[in-house]
């Protein structure tokens, strides 16, 4: 039978639970294998970052929704972290296959990579639960919809944009609704958020122009 919005939202949550049922709150053995293969082992910094981001997330969630919902925020964060570790492992496996590389020291010690991956996982969890509440007309959440998550984690919109496609590729079990939501976030970023004055996008554009040697040509008037 055709899905009602409630059914669709519930299916998405169920799917998220199925995906994460077997996922772990801490790095898996496979992940530890990759960590140990790094020139600089990132294990400690990754776990510490998850802890620190957790404190920020829970405080901001409680601030936004109410102290009575602090435990809900805690649960959301926990689910997000499971998805973060699961997708990280899948990303590394595919990079290992693609590049025939086993030492991911630079990537795994890159702060922005981890925060954008965690933010993407948390955004998906937040959207999944928010859509359920919206379809049941339950107004529990104040506006925690995107870009709330990148604002509280102090992440640039374009930095999140860089991870979305790889995230979707790395997690084949995402539902249509989840993928649609991430695509919607991408559109919001490219339509406006990525063009804010402090966006790293401008530097990337400048670098690519420099690389193409266009810098020394006079810019055509229509620029």
């Amino acid at each position: 039978p055709p899905q009602t919005p409630v059914r669709a939202a519930m299916n998405t949550i169920q799917q998220l639970m199925i995906i994460l049922n077997s996922a772990s709150d801490i790095p898996s053995d496979n992940l530890l294998f990759y960590f140990n293969n790094c020139t600089v082992n990132p294990h400690e910094s990754i776990v510490k970052r998850v802890e620190n981001m957790g404190i920020i997330f829970k405080n901001k969630f409680a601030e936004a929704v109410g102290q009575g919902c602090a435990e809900i925020g805690s649960q959301r964060y926990k689910i997000g972290v499971r998805l973060y570790y699961r997708v990280m492992e899948s990303l590394l496996k595919s990079e290992e296959k693609r590049l025939s590389v086993h030492n991911f020291s630079k990537l795994l010690n890159n702060d922005v990579f981890h925060i954008s991956l965690l933010a993407c996982a948390l955004e998906l969890v937040m959207a999944t639960y928010a859509s359920r509440n919206a379809s049941q007309n339950v107004n529990v959440e104040t506006d925690l919809s995107f870009p709330w998550i990148i604002n509280i984690l102090d992440l640039k919109a374009f930095e999140l944009y860089m991870i979305v496609e790889s995230f979707i590729k790395a997690e084949p079990s995402l539902t249509r609704e989840m993928i649609k939501h991430l695509e919607c976030c991408e559109h919001k970023i490219m339509e406006s958020l990525a063009w804010q004055s402090n966006s790293p996008l401008f530097e990337l554009i400048k670098q690519s122009k420099d690389r193409e040697g266009q810098a020394d040509e006079p810019e055509p008037a229509n620029y």
Binding site: S94, F104, K106, L107, N110, F113, M162, E165, S166, I179
Partner: peptide, 21 residues
């Protein structure tokens, strides 16, 4: 994922995107 428009080119992955190749 059939609805999603993948745009990364061959040889572009997370390592290149985060400048860690």
């Amino acid at each position: 994922t059939q609805d999603y428009h993948f745009g990364l080119e061959e040889g572009e992955g997370i390592s290149e995107l985060f400048d860690c190749d």
